[in-house]
Design a protein around this nucleic acid. Structure first.
Lengths: 124, 124
DNA sequence: GCCAAACTTGACAATAATTCTCAAATATAA
DNA sequence: TTATATTTGAGAATTATTGTCAAGTTTGGC
């Protein structure tokens, strides 16, 4: 993977935005400083960075994928009211991988947990 | 929700197919007995049945959604090799909901767990 | 520094999954 | 058995994402 200014910007945009943005959101931000960046370039870079394990793609939320600069094991919570995405520490799930491997015999390469519900701001 | 023959067929097709089919798969089966059923009707009914809690939509697998007639709490495992979707009992995750609610204060309405890895046939 | 090979880009066409629109058909309740 | 509400089929429309390709950029060896 060669260096590219655009890819650097994608990664930095993700790191600077605590939210878990969609491609569209990142695109809007990138266009502010680079009027000519292309959507294809963005998607290409998001895929490459995901492939390289530098970022994580979060699927299963609404229609479009979200991206996460935090690649440590953790889960996600999406508020059904305000649609914000929150991080959930992985230890809430106990020995989920070990338990599942023992019960099934399958080899687990990765797993994702997504919660839906009301965040503290919206539950009132 | 009024009665409709097509919706009945959607539900029955899902129940008779132990796999976790996509809309496309269900569509192919329905076309065998009803040459004139429309894709829009299928998607409408899948959404209505999901809304009504009679089936469950599984997102986050490949590009298209899968549907599940089993609405009891359970998780899914997708084999990265053969792409089949397996059911995983919910007890592998311990008190995941209680733990998460206690740790965050959020109200959890639902949660999904998706594993990726190799099934017993493919791990050899 | 200069060059060739490999990689990346922007523009935009193409695709895939799903949703929308609307007139015609069907179901329901009185 | 009729009026009202719901559902359908057909196909156009939409949305997110990927593919194509010529032009621009990066890199490692000289």
């Amino acid at each position: 993977m060669n260096y590219s200014k655009q890819r650097e910007t994608v990664l930095q945009t993700l790191r600077e935005n605590v939210v878990h943005p969609t491609a569209e959101y990142i695109y809007d931000i990138m266009r502010k400083t680079d009027k000519s960046v292309s959507l294809a370039t963005l998607y290409r870079n998001l895929n490459q960075l995901t492939e390289a394990g530098k970022i994580k793609k979060i699927e299963g939320l609404e229609n479009s994928a979200h991206y996460d600069h935090n690649i440590h094991e953790h889960y996600h919570f999406i508020c059904t009211e305000c649609k914000r995405v929150f991080d959930i520490p992985a230890d809430v799930a106990g020995d989920i991988v070990k338990n599942t491997e023992e019960k099934t015999g399958f080899v687990i390469q990765s797993h994702d947990v997504i919660f839906h519900g009301l965040c503290n701001d919206c539950k009132k």
